[in-house]
Design a protein around this nucleic acid. Structure first.
Lengths: 290, 290
DNA sequence: TTGTAAGCGTTATCAG
DNA sequence: CTGATAACGCTTACAA
């Protein structure tokens, strides 16, 4: 059995892919990781894992990994290029640096990304609520800096404008975590008139909204409808089961590996970004308003 | 910036730790991974991730990684030694091979492990239910082959015997996933007399029990009490918030790294296993039986 | 077909 | 203290 370091040194290639996530404990990222891991193993690559805990500071050691050729490429779930990787992008011009974003980016900066059509997805979610008769809708968006969140906001507003009700859309921003969803939902429900429905830009923040409803003894969906984003594993087991925009998370991870290996293989004819289909999954947290 | 492969070849050490999990999407493993990642980075190690999807077949490529010196050591969450690593254990005798188990093992086979006192933890959970007045208790255990599950079963039975009610404990086995928890809970509640409380050996199977209660219109905790294990992040946000035995998952990951690095550093005076404290976290799924 | 040698980028050693 | 040199284990190219 050949020694890995010697082999890597000889061929100048590590057959390792670095994956950085903002927070492993976010249940939406696990399927992405599974997809990455599966696709990587199929191509005889292994996965180096980095958890940045959403701290820019924690990204630095990982950009060093790339520069040390400890990994051949990087797949990152983040709303920004990891610290110090701009250099790599510049250095690789006019070709692609071996970086691929999943989930959080929109086509941007010459960095390939694997996403969904975020605007259309949010449009669909709001459309569902309008179809049920809701007009005053609260949105728990992600951080204002997140491209995915911005796109979703754009799609949501477009649907509201189409109904001539853009002013009826009220927005709060969270950080994707449950506690921030709680805070945002409190603010939303304190408005008057209060919204009859809340759309969270991920399931965790939607869970925050459900928690606030519970605390205020609002029945879901009778008194308040809730829609999430992602379709994490427990979404269907919440009480009541969560209506949510399902993302093909696992496949997004697999596709990210494909794109990255294409870049590494020198196939520059790779499209710069891939949008996969989403699907509104209607369960039991949405109903007509009273 | 020095090249990693050359450096590794020169010093015959990769500063990488391989971590294999049976299923990344199990929310209990994420905090363990975070602990491992944090502790590893602190010691300037990086983490190679492997997801075995509970398939013995998928373990093989990872034992090769060790043999190729692609990683210096292995932390594994599994009820068995990964395929082909028995060889490493034998080869290292009488010293420790660089393998450490987290969460799933009990002191066993000369493989160091980081666990909790599983028997005591289950004893405490059953004791809580007895204290509330429950006598007929259903248990959703893990696979019969899992050492952790066996120890928990032993502790639960000890508490039941202490109350002279060992026969009142009824057991079904799941595979740690929600669907298996549903199946097991169905079987439990079909018994007559039906149990007034259910203890799941992880939170996901407990969620399965809650789901069955919902389907049968049993109110929790009025008609059925439920206790889980792990204290995953969403446990406190379930409706009602889940009573569960909290495991120090993150710290278990950190300790596993410490033990592994001690082995790698040749400190053979390392204790062969570490048991960390658990804590029964009482929330709202438990109450006296009607 | 089989075998031999060079060199990948470090670090550690040893001589100046 | 500074600078040349060998060796880590493999792959590949080339010669026998």
């Amino acid at each position: 059995v050949p020694n890995s370091a010697a082999q890597n040194l000889r061929v100048l290639r590590s057959r390792k892919l670095l994956v950085t996530v903002p927070d492993i404990a976010n249940p939406a990222f696990a399927p992405v990781l599974q997809g990455v891991e599966t696709a990587a193993r199929r191509q005889r690559y292994t996965v180096l894992l980095g958890d940045t805990q959403r701290q820019s500071l924690n990204e630095e050691p990982y950009s060093i990994i790339l520069r040390r050729k400890e990994a051949d490429g990087l797949i990152f779930i983040s709303h920004r290029l990891p610290k110090d990787t701009e250099l790599l992008v510049q250095a690789a011009k006019p070709r692609c640096a071996p970086l691929v974003n999943v989930v959080e980016f929109t086509p941007h900066l010459g960095v390939p990304c694997v996403t969904i059509d975020n605007a259309a997805a949010a449009y669909d979610a709001i459309d569902h609520l309008y179809g049920l008769g809701h007009r005053r809708i609260g949105i728990i968006a992600g951080p204002t800096i997140s491209p995915a969140s911005r796109d979703r906001l754009r799609g949501a507003k477009r649907r509201a404008r189409a109904a001539g009700a853009a002013g009826q859309l009220i927005v709060e921003h969270g950080d994707w975590g449950i506690p921030s969803g709680i805070t945002a939902a409190e603010a939303l429900l304190d408005r008057s008139p209060a919204p009859t429905a809340v759309l969270g830009f991920n399931d965790e923040m939607a869970i925050g909204a459900i928690e606030v409803a519970r605390r205020r003894s609002l029945r879901i969906p009778a008194d308040l409808s809730v829609v999430g984003f992602d379709d994490i594993r427990i979404a269907r087991y919440l009480a009541p089961p969560l209506t949510t925009v399902a993302l093909p998370l696992r496949e997004m991870g697999e596709q990210a590996v494909r794109v990255l290996l294409d870049i590494l293989g020198g196939k520059i004819d790779t499209p710069l970004s891939i949008a996969l289909p989403h699907e509104l999954t209607v369960r039991a947290t949405t109903a007509p308003p009273r």
